[in-house]
Amino acid sequence: MESDKIRLEIVTPYRQVLDAEVDEVIAPGEEGQFGVLPGHTPFLSTIIVGELVYRQGNQLKYVAVSHGYAEVEYHRVTVLLDAAERPEEIDVARAEAARQRAESKLAQLSQDDHDYYETLAALDRAMNRLHFVRARAPQQKG
């Protein structure tokens, strides 16, 4: 294996989103963002809703991520996620609908309700997708 590259694999229960050789990965960990360069020490972290960035040469690429895990080995990063999308894959209308649904549901719930946090998480995911599209979709050149 080449020693100056990282093999980045992103998988969700529905599909393999990415399997590529990259130079750097920056992922949103539960305790803050972390960056991974080749030769990083083995490391296991939870991933929270946000944005994962990877670099190939001097090109930055972005993936919107949902809850999951990242397993880092010296030259390999495996990311297991509930859901992950590239900018061009996000269905804006669906995310917008999900946001509205979550917001109106949230308005009727109080913090003690059974599915309060679930709805909050759904809202979080929808917002993340929308922000992500707004920030990343137009400037595809990187």
């Binding site: 229960p13 960990g29 305790e31 020490t41 083995p42 490391f43 296991l44 972290s45 939870t46 895990y69």
Partner: peptide, 27 residues
């Protein structure tokens, strides 16, 4: 077995990953 650095703690990770493993199995 690889020695990992865990973030957050080992226990928290395990508590999170085990149910998820069940989901995957059932799925």
């Amino acid at each position: 077995p690889v020695e990992y650095i865990y973030e957050p703690s080992e226990d928290a990770l395990l508590a999170d990953i085990l149910p998820r493993y069940i989901f995957t199995q059932v799925f």
